[in-house]
Amino acid sequence: ESVLNQTLKEIEVICVNDGSTDSTLKILKEYQSNDDRVKIINKENSGYGDSLNKALDIVQGEYVGIVEPDDYIKPEMFKTLYDASVKYSLDKCRCLFHDVYTDRITINKFPAVPKNIVFSPLEKKEIFFVSPSIWACIYKTSLIKDNNIRFLNTPGASYQDTSFNFKTNALAKRIMFIDKALHFYRRESGGNSVTNKAKVEFVQIEWSEIYNFVKSQNGNLDCLYPTMAMVLLNSYDWNYKRIADCFKSSFMFSWWKETVQRHVLGQIKFKELSPFYKKVEYVVLFMPFLYGRFSRNDRKKIW
């Protein structure tokens, strides 16, 4: 309803029913019968990435946005982002969002990223350190289709926004970050551990895709290697903290092996990292068995 009630009326609403119950499909059809902007893709459960890819295959609008089923958006969100995109010929436009918990609502301002100005991500790489939040953006459809930007079809996977977000940032020439919180993102209140062994590795699959993507660009994106190394440290650190204790050692070993390989390939160089990340990288490379002894905040203080 928050999508259909947008002040920007000229929209197409593609609803993907990914193997949900018949009652879900019935509800979608009721909305479709009352609003001819609604289109339905009804499919077997094949995962988040495949669902979004199937929607992207039939998108016809000049710009495209994503709204996940448990979130909601302000009525003016798409009009605000679309008007800025048209005015400034943007490839990607992003807004702030509300983190919605059961007991509170907060807004992360992302102060390191410039707001309300047009910039190139290759010149202002701070954008790569911001959480992917693919649903807080609209993208020029041609950016996605001309570059064949897709989500990975990894059934049951997590982190599938990681490589999609990186690719759209890397290939967009003109981005704007609107200084308004227009999206409401529901978060779990608890810090549940990941106890599925397969899901422990999904973040590594996404980063493998990112490195392969950059390698395929004939050197045009090699300037991003230092940024990638530092953002990867953030991603892997976050994953390390949330996986069950029984998986931490094996994940750390895989992380260490990747790090060694990328140093050998010249994709990571100590001299190109900031002082904090240089210290973290040193521990991952030479003392991985010590990594889990401190929280991230403790590491910032100690190192």
Rank of each mutant, 00 (worst) to 15 (best):
G292I: 05
I14R: 04
D35Y: 02
K301C: 07
K92R: 14
S295T: 14
K92Y: 13
E126Q: 12
L285S: 09
P288N: 06
S274T: 12
A84L: 09
V67T: 14
D22C: 12
S142Q: 09
T168G: 04
Y88T: 02
D71F: 08
N42L: 01
V260N: 04
K257D: 05
C137S: 12
Y72L: 12
N42E: 14
N108V: 10
N153T: 13
Q160I: 13
G191V: 03
I11C: 01
V67R: 10
I138P: 01
S254D: 06
N108D: 12
S46A: 14
A198S: 13
S2W: 01
F177Q: 00
S133K: 11
F97C: 12
Q160F: 12
K54W: 06
K125N: 07
K140S: 08
K278Y: 10
L265Q: 09
G292Q: 06
G156S: 01
V118A: 04
G19P: 00
R150V: 07
N153F: 02
Y48V: 11
E30V: 13
E10S: 13
V203H: 06
I73G: 07
L4C: 11
K269S: 07
K199E: 09
N169M: 14
D70V: 10
D22T: 14
E281H: 15
N17P: 02
S274I: 06
E201R: 11
N192S: 11
K87E: 15
E30S: 15
Q261K: 09
N192W: 07
N53F: 02
N239F: 00
K180I: 05
I58V: 15
V100A: 03
Q204I: 08
V260T: 04
V203A: 09
Y82A: 02
R186I: 11
K173P: 00
N116T: 04
S131E: 10
Q261E: 09
S158R: 13
S23H: 15
N220Y: 05
V59H: 05
D50T: 14
V16N: 07
S216H: 03
K173D: 13
N234Q: 06
W303S: 11
V284Q: 06
V200D: 05
V3E: 03
D50F: 10
K271E: 13
R299G: 06
Y225C: 04
S249G: 02
I205V: 11
W135H: 12
N116F: 05
T195N: 10
L152A: 10
I134F: 05
K215A: 12
Y211W: 07
P75N: 15
D36K: 15
M228C: 01
N196Y: 06
L8N: 04
F151H: 14
M176N: 01
K145L: 10
I268Y: 05
Y236C: 05
K199N: 11
D179N: 14
I58S: 08
L96F: 02
N196W: 03
K199C: 05
K248L: 03
S33I: 03
I268E: 06
D298I: 13
L96Y: 00
E62S: 12
V203D: 06
W303N: 10
Q60L: 11
E126D: 12
K26I: 08
S189M: 09
D222F: 07
S193I: 04
